[in-house]
Design a protein around this nucleic acid. Structure first.
Lengths: 214, 214
DNA sequence: TGCTGATGTATCACCTCGATACATCGAGTT
DNA sequence: AACTCGATGTATCGAGGTGATACATCAGCA
């Protein structure tokens, strides 16, 4: 079961669209872009790269160092998107379905907002906001219910978690306002989307919703 | 390698000190106490319970339902702390070492602050604050370095992550002030610690520091 | 020359998760 | 009383992720 979360795939595809890269560099960029807090180990990255290559979404150059042809254990393998990879990336970036408001996936989608068209950006932000609001409501309820049974520290911890989410909602509101205002100081109309097919629509089934932490 | 994170163990021990419980109830309490956001699956819980029982830290009652002796598939197994379990819990709650400022472990330790003596509480809060401040500094640096190369959305995401951590630092500051003020409205001197041995000291080696998300 | 640390690819053991199976119980509903 | 349905309960499995580590090259530097 448990499908390999597409998050990593999408992040790799997105970065590779920027420019071809090898694993090590990819990891650095990933950790930079995806929040600076996350870890991401090679144990996930390299298998993911090989699997993406198998699926024909990316291709890796032969291992060359500069002059020496092979042999070297440190030979870099530079990956780049194939046509199929670009197409998939385009579909992903064009979609604004529920999967895009998941915690992790949202971060990735947001990181590539510059390659996403304005309408999709707005839909993702609003969807994310709704998702968080719903979660907030649930937590508030269970908090209210179990409040008496908790000591002051436990409830303080709850309260803080709530605050963190509220803080994110406020952040989203700011962004949504900015987007609605038409985003001045940027070429407004022609936000060059990446993909070939702007249709796409919400890919994949319902979101999996895996709240992890504050 | 990769030791089973003690976090879950400590949480179980702490909850069981409150009152004996069976798995299902434990999970509910755990999800309530530990942030309401986390998931915690049975796939982690039941193995952890068995392992704790093997280590002699908890004991499970024989499966009984009320009258029917066994057989029933839904027979509850109520676990409770052994003497060894109480001792370990005492050591854990008495320690304020680096492991206690890890993201997850901190939450657990905080959740059981009511059973922790005042001095240890303060040391944990301060340690956590230092930890976050250090992380903040690191992220700020890498942010400043890579700033030019990121588009506005990526840097906005970074900024937001930074804000979330700053928010937590502010929260800690509030708590530290309160603790320093001596915590009125509570029996001040005699915070009844749980363990048998108030010595304890920072157990286990250096912290593993696994920043996960905002 | 030898040391150290960053750059690189790769794998392993263990952990954790989501899903699921199976079974019982209480409370309504008809 | 028989029926359904959702909460209560214990338990396991496959798949994916993680930290650690191995191995190897390279640049700088004393």
């Amino acid at each position: 079961m448990r499908a390999r979360s597409d998050v990593l795939d999408h992040a790799i595809l997105g970065l590779l669209h920027g420019s071809p890269m090898h694993g090590y560099e990819l990891r650095k960029q990933l950790n930079l872009v995806l929040g600076s807090f996350r870890a991401l180990s090679y144990g996930s990255l390299y298998p993911a790269l090989r699997q993406l290559a198998e699926r024909g979404l990316i291709v890796g150059s032969d291992a060359v160092v500069e002059d020496r042809p092979v042999a070297s254990k440190r030979a870099r393998i530079v990956y780049q998107l194939t046509a199929a990879g670009k197409e998939l990336l385009g579909e992903v970036l064009g979609s604004a379905g529920p999967s895009a408001w998941d915690d992790e996936e949202f971060d990735v989608r947001f990181a590539f907002f510059a390659q996403t068209d304005a309408e999709t950006r707005l839909r993702i932000l609003e969807g994310r906001r709704t998702r968080l609001t719903e979660r907030l409501e649930l937590v508030r309820q269970s908090f209210a219910r179990g409040r008496e049974r908790m000591d002051e520290y436990t409830s303080e911890l709850q309260r803080h978690g709530l605050e963190q989410v509220e803080h994110e909602v406020a952040w989203l509101d700011r962004l949504i306002d900015t987007e609605r205002a038409g985003r001045p100081a940027r070429t407004p109309g022609t936000g060059s989307s990446v993909g070939t097919d702007p249709t796409a629509g919400p890919h994949r089934g319902a979101a999996t919703a895996k709240p992890k932490k504050e």
